[in-house]
Design a binder for these strands. Structure first.
Length: 330
DNA sequence: AAATAACTCAACCGCAGTAAA
DNA sequence: ATTTACTGCGGTTGAGTTATT
């Protein structure tokens, strides 16, 4: 945690500060009432340091209004929300957390929060759910779906190209195997995967793979359907299904909440995951938009709650996840 | 108990923006 | 208009600490 002392060619000291140096800096600033010119401060205060080093030591460590200790859950949530809005603007983020320095928040993000989001399956850069790894989690279902001979590709291969059905099935299974192997390679298998560092982007893939290989209890297949009046407006697909553009929110996904069997719209806004009931949104086909009445039924849920919420396939689904894959990959 | 790997965070570096000369 | 000095910011480093093998 402490660097070994070294000296630059100029003779100025670098590395960790001693308690004596800290006291000199504190005494000087308290006596003057302010730091004044950082460049001239070290000479006047009797410190063999550059002004930059003094400024950093004061702003990141010695300042009296600095809050020390662990980040609270509220602070964590705030940092995640602010990061989803501002990105790596640590200085800006720190202005919203009194007593916390940009350096401290940056370190906390890189060592804790990034890892936390990855383990929850959320991309810490985009703050959206990682869809590539959910594809892996749904691998067995994809594999079973490959036996469906009614798909377009099967029809094409069998009827148009004259390839036998069993050959088609074998080819599809082989493709699935290749896909599985590629995904396996992207995940680092190590016995200590649970403690993977923030620099390891494969933490979630390790988690998914562990679940996949150790148990047959796989995450529920999440498919999409048209909304209540059957006028869905597809813009893109994801593991949550077809997304919708909303006026104030980037994307919405129609889902069914198994807790109360209600049909809801899941969307991501300003770093929050939000759920809206079917009563609180309507579809404008002309504008290819969903209009959301935010004041009525939209409620915010945190990312942890989202993970445990069992969002299941809708009964009136017109398209299955398999069909989406068919359209994309075949 | 020792070796190794992973994690933490204070401190440094370099760049960009701004003000003064 | 150009140069210089200074400050602030974000990315990175690396020694000490802790966890794992």
């Amino acid at each position: 945690m402490v660097r070994s002392p070294s000296r630059e060619e100029t003779g100025l000291k670098k590395g960790p500060w001693t308690p004596e140096e800290d006291q000199k800096l504190i005494d000087y600033i308290q006596k003057q009432g302010s730091h004044g010119s950082w460049r001239h401060l070290p000479r006047i205060a009797g410190l063999n340091r550059c002004g930059k080093s003094c400024r950093l030591r004061w702003t990141n460590y010695l300042r009296p209004d600095i809050k020390r200790g662990k980040f609270s859950e509220e602070e964590e949530k705030l940092i995640i929300n602010l990061h989803s809005m501002f990105g790596n603007k640590w200085s800006l983020i720190s202005t919203k957390l009194p007593g916390r320095t940009d350096n401290e928040i940056k370190n906390y993000w890189n060592t804790h929060l990034k890892k936390k989001l990855l383990l929850m399956g959320i991309d810490p850069v985009t703050h959206r759910r990682r869809t590539d790894l959910e594809l892996l989690a749904n691998f067995p279902k994809l594999l079973s779906s490959s036996t469906n001979s009614s798909s377009f590709i099967n029809s094409l291969m069998e009827n148009t190209l004259g390839i036998q059905a069993d050959t088609v099935q074998l080819a599809r299974i082989q493709i699935m195997q290749v896909l599985f192997q590629v995904l396996l390679k992207t995940a680092s298998f190590s016995s200590s995967s649970s403690s993977s560092s923030s620099s390891n982007p494969n933490a979630y893939s390790n988690l998914v793979l562990s679940n996949l290989l150790s148990s047959s209890q796989l995450p529920p297949l999440q498919t999409f359907s048209n909304n209540s009046n059957g006028s869905s407006v597809p813009l893109e697909t994801s593991s949550f299904g077809e997304s919708f553009q909303t006026p104030n929110h980037s994307h919405g996904f129609p889902v069914q909440n198994s807790e109360n069997n209600s049909k809801q719209l899941l969307f991501h806004s300003n770093g929050n995951n939000m759920l809206a009931s079917t009563e609180s949104y309507s579809v404008d086909q002309k504008q290819d938009q969903i209009d959301l009445n935010e004041t009525s039924a939209a409620n915010s849920v945190n990312a942890r709650a989202m993970d445990t919420l069992n969002l299941t396939e809708l009964d009136d689904s017109d398209l299955s996840w398999k069909d989406v894959l068919d359209q994309i990959y075949w």
